[in-house]
């Protein structure tokens, strides 16, 4: 049965029962590469869209303001 799932994972584990904490992890050993990848991709996207908006949509469509 699907409802057995949560109970099975907590009940049968060897983790600390009181806090549910698996182990202590020093800050520098925590390496969220997934978050880094998503943040990096978002920054690249922002830069590309900004450049497109500025150079293609704003700056290249004649007529322009010349004075």
């Amino acid at each position: 049965m699907p409802t057995d799932e949560p109970e099975a994972s907590t009940g049968g584990g060897t983790t600390d029962e009181a806090s549910g904490k698996a182990r202590d992890l020093p800050l520098d050993e925590f390496q969220p590469y997934g978050t880094l990848a998503v943040t990096g991709a978002y920054f690249v996207l922002l830069l590309v869209l900004y450049a497109l908006l500025y150079f293609v949509e704003f700056a290249t469509h004649a007529p322009h303001i010349i004075e």
């Binding site: 007529p63 322009h64 010349i66």
Partner: peptide, 23 residues
């Protein structure tokens, strides 16, 4: 002028200016 660089706000009391050449 949509799709161009010509765009300004026109405010009562002020004179907006822009110079262009239509290609």
């Amino acid at each position: 002028v949509p799709g161009s660089g010509l765009n300004t706000t026109v405010i009562p009391g002020q004179v907006a200016t822009l110079t262009t050449r239509f290609p």
